[in-house]
Simulated assay, not measured.
Amino acid sequence: MYKLYVRPGACSKAINVLLRDLDQKVEVIDARNLEGFKSISPTGAVPAMIDEQGNVFVEGVAIILHLLEKHNSAMLPKELLKKTDFIRWLTFANATMHPAYSRLFFLNSVVKDEAEKANTMKAAAAKVSEYWQIVEDKLNKQRYMGGDQINIVDVWLAVYAGWNAYFPVEVTIGPKAKAMIADVQAMPSFKAATESEKF
């Protein structure tokens, strides 16, 4: 059984969903205020995972690639160009979209002046919307980020989309991306992961 350290609704939820899609047993642990968590994840960030042999894994992309390869998932393409494209979108989600949302969280919590907050958050939301347009453009050619089947990139993006409710500014998501998100949210594994994080 895997031990997965999460914060409810955080990006670690994507790993929670993935483990279920891979038919793996998982113990979901709330990392909030967990004493000694930095001995597992030195940055204090989630996700963090421990496997049956006691190996510790941190950083979302590394965990995802490890799990897909270990469990021989068809989600990870064998052909080099397709694998590179998959990793490209995986890193887009992790290294482009996630930091853009992190800026919104930062501004929302740190900027106290309401006029300044409105202006800076509007600009930050526009950048997130710009990234969602890149997703929309991709989905104009195919139903999901990897083709005709939902993959972990779709799941990760759907988790991020749920964060829009936390902000007093609008993030624009196109109709194709909204349809993809709805399909992900309807997955039994996504619903089970959501339920498991109600600590």
Rank of each mutant, 00 (worst) to 15 (best):
I173M: 15
M75V: 10
F199Q: 09
F190V: 15
T43L: 01
W156I: 14
V6Q: 01
I50A: 07
K3T: 07
P77D: 08
L34H: 03
G162L: 07
W156R: 14
V17H: 05
P188G: 03
K191W: 13
D183K: 02
V155Y: 10
K83T: 02
D30M: 04
D137S: 13
N119P: 10
H71R: 11
A177P: 10
K78F: 15
A62C: 12
D113S: 02
I152S: 09
Q53A: 11
I64T: 07
A158K: 02
A192Q: 04
A123D: 11
D183E: 11
L18F: 10
M180S: 07
P42G: 04
E79A: 12
P99A: 09
P188Q: 09
S12Q: 03
M49N: 06
I15Y: 02
Q149G: 08
A45I: 03
A48H: 00
Y5A: 00
L76S: 13
K178F: 09
H71M: 04
A193F: 02
H71C: 03
A193N: 08
K176D: 07
F92G: 11
S73T: 06
T120L: 12
M49Y: 01
E130V: 12
E79Q: 15
K112T: 14
I181A: 06
N119E: 12
D183W: 07
Q24V: 05
T172L: 14
Y2H: 14
Q24K: 14
S109L: 06
F37P: 00
I63N: 03
